[in-house]
């Protein structure tokens, strides 16, 4: 009896689902001259994410929509896209919270488009690698008899910045990235800070040298948009300013 009630409630909630128009940007650089928006009517519930809606379209209405995703829980950073004009993770954005009858999904800006909603993140990974994203220390935890001990305060200095999932939303929101193709970008600069602030690391001078160039840290003007779009609370704007503090002599 109880099961029947639950089933009835579920079916009634299915009936009460609302409809939204999903405008998906379609563009194939191999044969299209420009982006075209295609509208799809999609039903959604309170908990439906934008990624769920796109996958619904892909399954039932247009198989050709190109979208990249993996974990569906804001851990892998694959499904970054521009949703209603702002870079967000599609799996972490519920349609109900957008408070709009039309949801426009486009590929993230400042990255080359592979197809439709998929962008090429290779440039971001290149700048990320440039920052030497690993602990530089000749002493090794493995060969040493002692592990590198850290106090909770020492961990707090960098742990926030270690949450980066390399989704690239920060680079997409950055106003400098919008015009400067050589800028290192908030993602890479924040990762430089993450390792510089780690007391186990001895590569501070090496990294500061890499970022202290004309398209490096000095191009950040502290607009803060990177921090506003970060889905993991990394706060790149803070990391970059603290990093600049080392170069300006405010931090040791």
């Amino acid at each position: 009896m109880a099961n029947t009630q639950i089933a009835e409630e579920q079916s009634s909630s299915e009936v009460s689902s609302k409809t939204v128009t999903l405008k998906i940007a379609k563009f194939n650089p191999e044969h299209d001259s420009g982006t075209q928006f295609v509208d799809f009517k999609v039903q959604y519930e309170r908990w439906t994410t934008v990624l769920d809606a796109i996958l619904d379209v892909k399954e039932h209405l247009d198989h050709s929509v190109a979208v990249r995703y993996s974990c569906r829980q804001a851990s892998c950073g694959s499904c970054g896209m521009k949703i209603n004009g702002r870079p967000r993770l599609a799996c972490f954005t519920k349609i109900s919270e957008l408070d709009s009858d039309v949801i426009t999904v486009e590929p993230m800006n400042n990255y080359p488009i592979v197809r439709d909603l998929v962008v090429d993140l290779e440039g971001m990974f290149d700048t990320h690698k440039k920052m030497k994203p690993f602990i530089i220390n000749e002493d090794s935890e493995i060969t040493n008899t002692k592990e590198f001990l850290q106090t909770p305060e020492q961990i707090e200095e960098y742990i926030q910045f270690a949450n980066c999932i390399k989704c690239g939303l920060c680079n997409s929101a950055c106003p400098t990235m919008a015009t400067d193709s050589s800028f290192l970008g908030p993602q890479a600069l924040t990762q430089a800070y993450r390792y510089v602030a780690d007391n186990r690391d001895k590569g501070k001078n090496e990294r500061l040298k890499i970022i202290d160039e004309s398209h490096g840290i000095w191009r950040c003007h502290f607009a803060g948009s990177c921090s506003q779009v970060c889905p993991k609370g990394v706060d790149p704007a803070m990391g970059i300013q603290l990093l600049r503090g080392y170069l300006l002599g405010f931090r040791k």
Partner: peptide, 26 residues
């Protein structure tokens, strides 16, 4: 404000972020 911020002054301290994430630098 920006000159102080660029030196890391007034942009807050790094902490473990809690959801909903409100950036300390803002």
């Amino acid at each position: 404000r920006l000159m102080l911020g660029h030196g890391g002054i007034g942009v807050g301290k790094p902490t473990r972020p809690d959801y909903p994430y409100i950036p300390n630098s803002q």
